[in-house]
């Protein structure tokens, strides 16, 4: 498989800060927008209700239009498994997320879409969010391979666990082809399971 285009070693773009903890996937994309058989329109509805309720919401601000590095708090993307949430963020333009911790299914969904989610300390996140709001046009470099985020003259540590990091850096995050490579080992494993064999 040609994985060159898929490699997610590092990406640079403008940042968008989104403070607050426990922002769930119902917040990111309310369920009523899930009544779609494609993901195409998801980007238009990202944070729809949150944006309406809060005119100051960063996703409302023209300053952050075109940003691609989202900086969040703790437990971002908790709740529902809906892939519509990372799809909505991705289609809005987000290519990487830096936060304190992530809902696990959301994290996995992001990997499947080639969106790295990096974990940084609370202090560094606050610093990064402050810097971005002070200077929204400045680039933020997200280095998945080196596990760091660079902005201005600062570098902060931002980690991704080995498995997903290898997938992102190696370009194997779009996993179907990789899983198919196992060939008949899939059936062999299945046949050994008592419930598949019929006890």
């Amino acid at each position: 498989m040609n994985t060159t285009d898929y490699k997610r070693r590092q990406m640079t773009g403008r940042g968008i800060p989104l403070p607050g903890n426990d922002i769930d996937t119902d917040r990111i994309i309310p369920a009523r927008f899930l009544k779609e058989v494609t993901f195409q329109t998801m980007g238009e509805h990202v944070f729809e209700d949150a944006k309406k309720q809060n005119p100051e919401h960063p996703f409302n601000s023209p300053v952050y239009k075109g940003a691609s590095v989202l900086v969040v708090g703790q437990n971002f993307g908790c709740g529902s498994s809906r892939e519509h949430a990372p799809q909505a963020l991705m289609r809005w333009g987000i290519a990487a997320i830096v936060g304190g911790s992530f809902g696990e299914i959301f994290f996995g969904n992001c990997v499947m879409l080639g969106i790295p989610c990096l974990v940084a300390s609370q202090a560094d996140l606050e610093l990064l969010q402050r810097e971005i709001s002070r200077s929204p046009q400045s680039p933020v470099a997200v280095d998945v391979e080196k596990q760091e985020v660079r902005f201005g003259d600062r570098t902060i540590k931002a980690t991704v666990p080995d498995g997903p990091r290898n997938q992102l850096v190696g370009g194997t995050w779009d996993s179907t082809a990789v899983l198919l490579e196992a060939g008949t080992a899939i059936e062999t494993t299945a046949r050994k399971l008592p419930y598949v064999a019929g006890f």
């Binding site: 498995g163 194997t172 990789v178 899939i186 399971l193």
Partner: peptide, 11 residues
């Protein structure tokens, strides 16, 4: 029992 193999990524 359900492990088919260890992937190159370590997963």
């Amino acid at each position: 029992a359900h492990t088919v193999r260890t992937l190159p990524s370590g997963q």
